[in-house]
Design a protein around this nucleic acid. Structure first.
Lengths: 215, 215, 215, 215
DNA sequence: TATGAATGAGACTTCATTCAT
DNA sequence: TATGAATGAAGTCTCATTCAT
């Protein structure tokens, strides 16, 4: 539609319309994300989001039907990042492995920051609550699967309560994130990883695994 | 509650003014608490709180400067209930002991319910955030103290990272509450208690403690 | 609730709350009515209505859920005034009788003025459209009844199409109102009355009726 | 309509610029007309009109300064169709003649449909009100002329109030249109025509006219 | 003190109109 | 010229807070 046959030397980085729109949408998403994190969802207005994104109020409504939908879009974009990678307990040094998993998971979460906004929304938005519940279910089952595999290989405590332990790991991972906040250090992750390993593996198995993977 | 059907003889009201005022204040607090839990803090209006407490909107503002202050008062009243009792690991069956501690702590928390409202407030109210941070610090140090004692008695893993483990226990206890919600069963607490015990005690010590306390 | 035991000599015309509220409601209704007529429904804002009634915007919403409901209330209050009295053709000079009926009906309509606002609303408000349709049905059947009686007494043209004539009378009465507007004169009504009488009565009957009632 | 599938040989577009512009303008007018009728004037947005006409919002404003001007243009185009043909009472069967006049007039009005939109506009647009008033004046005088001719030929009631009767006929014709709406039947027009004839002609004259034209 | 009506700031949303492409 | 994204003024409505009774 837009004639572009004259973009001789690419001097102006004229972005095609769609791309510019996408940029604007992204600017709004980012602006919303930041404000939600900084001030909380309720305290953020559509007007502010637009202003911070450098557009007029009305423009906000071209891209999102309302604040809530912007948040939903944020989540859709990012929900996968909430999922930690499935840990493979049986290969490699489990403590180090876990520590690095925790660290990267947490880095991602913090980089996004949205998890801080979510609790405040569970009350008013049951759809969102559902989405998050599903996500947690996924996380839980992913952890559970890993545990099960280790259990079947006879690596774990014999009397491991898989469900409960999976839940504990999930909670510790989540909270580790929130709690330790910005000032997280390598040691913290490693410490947490050790706690988790102790929950899962008997000391002898653990020692064996550590030695095996030392080489 | 306030029977007054006998104020016929011009006696002074049975309840002195101050006490009646106190009752009203309490009604407002309770009304606020319930509504905050039911609908969330933001979604609750001063008018509603007043209505549910059976007083006029204006009366609300005689007792509280605003919604926030009401919440603060609620917390001041209840903050101590957030603190779990200091566990004594060295006396009695630690698993059962812990399970029952967890259960009663959770019952109290749920009975109050405010913890569900708090996350939504941390953004807008740094004073409140501070208050809660302090409370957690207290809880953490209380758990830490208990762990330290057990550690000094040589009951725990030798390489126990006291800080981290205290934190883990705190988190598990907190989350156990939120997560398991209404439908919590005895087994859940016991399962969680076992996980925590495994974090703290080596299996042989644990077995000894269990046997000792069986008699 | 409001102590009033001290209204000694009625010096201040302290109106009981309810009555003042009623006054305010009426002020809003009247303000709305006037503005709707002056500027049209769409062109009138809730804010304006409130301002003209001397109250704040929010007060408007204490009494009415929105503009539309205010209009509906106006109509409920006034809808009966839209109904013309049932004409009795057989008693008295029908021309004079009809002229005076038309005049008073029109005065009432004009005094209210709402009929000018209604057409603009039929598009967007089918409930209102229904209400008005019902009102017209009532008017039509009232006229029809009167005609029927005259017809049965053999006073009218033998081949009178009662339905159609009733409709014509209704339309002429309505339009007479709108059209002739402010500058209506006695003669206009009388002229219109004569037209209608000619539709209904053969000249000889009419003459007889006129003579009878001259005495 | 605009077949252009053959523009292969670099010929000039079959339609000169001006003509294409005219087409667009017409598309906009038609789109506006339809939407005004369907949804009402206020409820129709410029964007919608443009969309339905298959052009961009901005294009709307190239052809019309705003919605109002589009409506005015519509009226200018169509105002003549609002005028009924001048009835010739003295030739042919006046009842049938009138019935067919009414029918075709109404068909035209309904085909256009704009009359339903007009009432809502009289408030906000005095220029438009003026235009319509003029149109009605024309209609009235056209009817009046016809009546006058019949009167001068001695065909009508002797005491005919020409002005008033002309007005009544105009009103009945107009309303007939609106009221009877879509489901109008031949009989309705004929019935209305009879009413009007009775207003105008004494029965004997009417009978004579009918007989004369029967042959 | 208690009441609850009144206030008005401000959030949400729509849409006529402009303007860069 | 045509496009349709962008603008921002203006209307709707809510609610924390005040204040006359």
């Amino acid at each position: 539609m837009t004639e572009r046959e004259d973009l001789l030397v690419g001097e102006y980085p004229i972005l095609p319309k769609q791309e510019r729109a996408q940029q604007k949408r992204n600017a709004l998403l980012e602006s919303g994300r930041i404000l939600f994190i900084e001030k909380g969802y309720e305290q953020t207005t559509a007007k502010e989001i637009a202003a911070r994104a450098g557009v007029a109020t009305g423009t906000f409504y071209r891209y999102f039907s309302d604040k809530r939908q912007l948040l939903m879009s944020l989540l859709e974009d990012k929900i996968d990042e909430l999922l930690p990678p499935e840990p493979n307990w049986t290969t490699g040094n489990p403590e180090l492995l876990l520590a690095s998993l925790l660290e990267s998971h947490m880095k991602r979460l913090n980089g996004m920051g949205l998890h801080r906004v979510l609790p405040e929304l569970l009350h008013k938005d049951s759809e969102l609550a559902e989405v998050l519940k599903e996500a947690r279910k996924k996380i839980h089952s992913r952890i559970l699967t890993g545990l099960k595999r280790a259990y079947d290989l006879g690596l774990t405590w014999k009397d491991l309560d898989l469900e409960k332990v999976a839940w504990s790991i999930m909670v510790l991972a989540e909270s580790g994130n929130t709690e330790m906040g910005e000032h997280c250090k390598k040691e913290d992750f490693f410490g947490l990883a050790k706690v988790i390993c102790r929950i899962v593996f008997p000391p002898d198995v653990l020692k064996k695994l550590l030695i095996e993977n030392e080489e």
